[in-house]
């Protein structure tokens, strides 16, 4: 379903066919014993549940105690019509697309500076730091940052008030999408900067020297050297971003809500929708609807990834 998710892998060197050496025959016997445990777990915990989810999405099922009844596409119809799903879908797209554009623009901007910066390695390590923090902890921390309570303001409003500007209700339903978008960009930029910088570091320095001789500006160097030569990695990073942004859950759940139960609908993501309809709900669970939303998630991942790879396709470059 998620075709072309991974970059084309470099092929193992073609082995000479024909008579196979004795030790190779012995080796090939290892294939299944070695692969089977991993493959069995993969099939049992990922492939079959995905299929089950797809099947369950066509049923009405309130969870334990209830039996699934086949209802065709009713679940989907109801879900698409519901405001909570629409908000979740739009928010998720905002995080994927706007957050993605923002993160990559930020990452690109950083590559133009970090390439020849003194102490660049240390800066990269500091930028990467939010990526090792549990999203749930990040969400709580950002909750403190964005807290609005006159007299007990969070860090952001504390600064705004000290600068003589008014405090902002960042976490009000109408603002929370943008506060979360900003937070995601902050938290994940370091990871994508690191990936891109690893690619930039592999560009031979003499290409930048030649563009210095040509008199290229930093923008021209980015446009004519950095971007084309990191294009493949940018593509892979884009895929990773899409995958990670679509399943975003804990950060938003904790940041926008009270923590133990779901935040206001305006802040929902698809991940929160699935959780709310199955495990997080205070009312009767709707496993069928949750499964339908989970199917939408994986469909969205597939579509966006295929689209991205199609858009980014180009001839391989060797250097």
């Amino acid at each position: 379903m998620v075709a072309q998710l991974t970059p084309p892998l470099t092929r193992a060197p073609a082995r000479v066919s024909g008579t196979t050496a004795e030790h190779l025959v012995g080796k090939k016997r290892l294939f299944w014993p070695f692969l089977l445990p991993a493959l069995a777990l993969y099939v049992a915990f990922l492939v079959l549940p995905t299929v089950a989810t797809a099947v369950l999405s066509f049923t009405h099922w309130a969870g334990a105690g209830d039996t699934p009844t086949f209802t065709g596409i009713d679940q989907y119809a109801q879900m698409f019509a519901s405001e909570s799903f629409q908000d979740s879908f739009v928010n998720t797209l905002v995080y994927v697309v706007i957050g993605g554009i923002g993160t990559f623009v930020l990452a690109f901007l950083f590559t133009t500076v970090l390439r020849d910066m003194r102490g660049g390695k240390l800066v990269r390590a500091i930028l990467f730091f939010p990526n090792i923090v549990a999203p749930v902890a990040l969400g709580m921390f950002l909750g403190f940052v964005f807290k609005f309570q006159p007299g007990k303001q969070g860090m952001a409003n504390f600064l705004l008030e000290h600068l003589g500007l008014g405090a902002v209700k960042f976490l009000q339903p109408e603002n929370v999408t943008w506060a979360v978008t900003g937070s995601i960009m902050w938290a994940s930029a370091g990871f994508y900067i690191t990936i891109l910088m690893a690619a930039v570091d592999r560009i031979p320095p003499y290409l930048y020297e030649d563009s210095d001789l040509a008199g290229a500006s930093p923008w021209q160097k980015f446009r004519h050297v950095t971007l084309p030569l990191t294009w493949d990695v940018v593509g892979v990073a884009g895929v990773l971003w899409t995958i990670n942004a679509i399943k975003i859950f804990e950060l938003v759940f904790v940041l926008a809500g009270p923590g133990t139960y779901s935040p206001p609908i305006r802040a929902w993501t698809l991940g929160i929708y699935v959780f709310d309809r199955s495990f997080g709900t205070q009312g009767t669970p709707e496993y069928g609807t949750a499964c339908a939303c989970a199917v939408v998630m994986i469909a969205l991942v597939s579509v966006l990834v295929v689209l991205l790879r199609r858009l980014m396709r180009r001839d391989a470059i060797q250097f």
């Binding site: 290409l207 020297e209 030649d210 001789l213 040509a214 004519h224 084309p228 470059i317 250097f319």
Partner: peptide
């Protein structure tokens, strides 16, 4: 700065841009 010196350089590794054609490489400056 290098661009104002009116010099051209041939590098040991040639420093050809792998994503550009020969014509684009020659015409890049």
């Amino acid at each position: 700065p290098p661009k104002d010196r009116d010099i051209a350089m041939v590098f040991q590794n040639y420093a050809l841009y792998p994503h550009m054609t020969v014509a684009e490489n020659i015409g890049f400056h």
